[in-house]
Write a protein that binds this DNA or RNA. Structure first.
Lengths: 342, 342
DNA sequence: CCAGTCCCCGCAACCGTTCCCGGAAAAAAG
DNA sequence: CTTTTTTCCGGGAACGGTTGCGGGGACTGG
């Protein structure tokens, strides 16, 4: 066990009291002389003093820490989010504890309990299941730390949230496919436990209705979020008798999986089959052909989440806000006009 | 400010002393009766008691926390690493604080100071610059917390490290290109500040020498680690008079950038130009054609890093180990035989 | 020369736990 | 019935800071 230098050590070395040392180190000019401040800081430097944050936190009953819970580590999305949050929070002196729920709501719950034990000042969470922990969140909220949901939000809770406008984004994306001439559009839908799935599916159906395209249930396939799920679903469709000439994916990874299956089978993109996806990141631009995607404003999302959380931390009575951010649809080569309409 | 239930509150409610409550909660069967344990746990549950970890940590002078410093958030590599570390550390009751250096060694240094203030029990770090903070690390090591370097290690330090076998991996990868018939191999080298760059370059040169291929300095281009850097370097080469028919990339993102440039210019992969890269992840399998890559044993790396760190935490005198992990070269479609040799 | 003011500093309580120590009561041994 | 051992519990000091309060000394004004 390493013996650290404490303010008491400094006090003894200088023959003064530890209160004075404490005040000098916090540069409390009104209550301590310039001379003493100089001597103390010099001694602290020389003796290698490092403030013990644990003691400070205990005394102040504030951990100066934000907890973040993210559902997965496959994408870099959440790491980038966390990085941005960290950059924003740096000047405020907050630390960040990052935990992973691995899409498991029991893990998520234990992460929360860890945060509670730790007396974090606030929590940012992208929920792994939008219903499972509802009562838990609710119970938590009425007596504890402020929570802000981001990306994967949960409804009907008395707290703030930030998410992208799924419905509109999906609507424009699907409509883009229709405008380009695709009418048999496959939808690789997201799993039921993610709230966003429903909005995107609804948008898909509304676009069809608006353009007088009959809705075919067999063209909606519920899949996982991973690229393997996308590849599997795509293969199954291609092996079946179901005809389609475009695919609208719930996630970017799904799209990449589907794309690979298509290319392996020598199905041309976008001539024979168009691909478009939600939750686009840099990946969409890296592949060939680049994929038309809806991109979230990641930095803006982090910014808003922090803003809302700090507001609640400073004043627990602050009104909750549910921010919905616009997205950018970026049209790339994967959704050119289909061959038959040219 | 929320008023939490303390051990004292429970003691008062039950008319017993706080020491007894503390012992009962830690189920110290030898020193407290079954009856009392039952009563205390019941009261704790009923009153909604949550242990204050800050106080525990202060009292025990142990934060029960591991700090992790990673250089970038673009890839999901480090997030996955962190996730694995968390999974391993969970049963030991350790928390994780993740910070980002953003490839800036001053930020890295301030992260370290934060960790020190926080009295973390150990640090896992992937260094952003293998020379800049050398004296800093050294000074830190001789009086502080155990450090284990991973992935991007630093030499000549009295601490443990885990990394992949860069030299051998690069050697086999380049030799694979040679065996396939490529002889004019471009190397997009890593930046000087990353230790691994040198090893990989050395391997590249050694392969050429072994196979009697003359080394041409113009075929080694130092680039950044990002995909933009790869794209730029590739473009520059293609615009110049320098002839090559294969490219050996320092990072996967570089390779993806280069690949995109090639495909945009209708240069066929692998017929006209092969691509192979180090630091391969799932991405390499997702694109088309899939990229031949060397993959690191991420989980194994996390496992070893944790093992070495825990060893040092439990016994600061434990000998240091420098673990070098083998890698897997996975041959994919981006490195078939070049047209001219068929 | 004395009262009032201001500047510095020390004392001690406090944050919530853990743990050592000592003592009382009960149980076991003689 | 005494002595020893065991069992169980309370008191209180620590962990390392922060902060309100009070007091001593210097300085100012009358």
């Amino acid at each position: 066990m390493i013996k650290y230098v404490t303010i008491k050590d400094i006090a003894n070395a200088l023959g003064i009291s530890k209160s004075t040392v404490s005040r000098a180190l916090s540069a409390d000019c009104r209550n301590v002389s310039e001379e003493t401040i100089r001597k103390v800081t010099e001694a602290a430097e020389r003796m290698g003093y490092m403030k013990n944050e644990m003691a400070v936190n205990l005394r102040n009953s504030r951990a100066k820490t934000i907890g973040i819970v993210v559902p997965e580590a496959v994408t870099s999305f959440y790491l980038q989010f966390t990085a941005t949050v960290q950059r924003i929070l740096q000047p405020y002196g907050y630390r960040i504890i990052l935990t992973l729920s691995d899409e498991d709501f029991m893990t998520e719950r234990s992460n929360f309990e860890m945060f509670e034990n730790y007396r974090v000042d606030g929590i940012l969470i992208s929920s792994c299941h939008h219903r499972a922990n509802l009562a838990f969140y609710d119970n938590y909220l009425r007596r504890c730390t402020p929570i802000v949901f981001f990306d994967r939000t949960v409804e009907n809770l008395a707290c703030s949230s930030v998410r992208s406008d799924d419905y509109s984004s999906a609507f424009f994306l699907v409509e883009h496919l229709v405008y380009e001439g695709y009418r048999r559009i496959l939808h690789l839908a997201g799993p039921d436990y993610i709230r966003n799935s429903a909005d995107r599916l609804r948008a898909y159906r509304d676009v069809l209705k608006k353009h007088g395209i009959p809705y075919r249930p067999e063209l909606v396939v519920t899949a996982g979020v991973d690229e393997r799920d996308g590849a599997e679903a795509m293969s199954r469709i291609l092996d079946s008798e179901i005809a389609c000439n475009a695919v609208f994916c719930f996630t970017e990874l799904q799209a990449l999986g589907a794309k690979r299956v298509l290319q392996e089978r020598r199905i041309r993109i976008p001539d024979d089959m168009a691909i478009a996806c939600m939750s686009g990141t840099k990946l969409s631009t890296l592949v060939y052909p680049a994929i038309t995607a809806v991109e979230q404003q990641l930095d803006k999302m982090a910014e808003e989440a922090v803003r809302l959380l700090l507001a609640k931390i400073e004043n627990p009575q602050a009104p909750s806000e549910n921010v919905v951010l616009p997205t950018n649809m970026i049209i790339r080569d994967s959704t050119g006009k289909p061959e038959e309409t040219r």
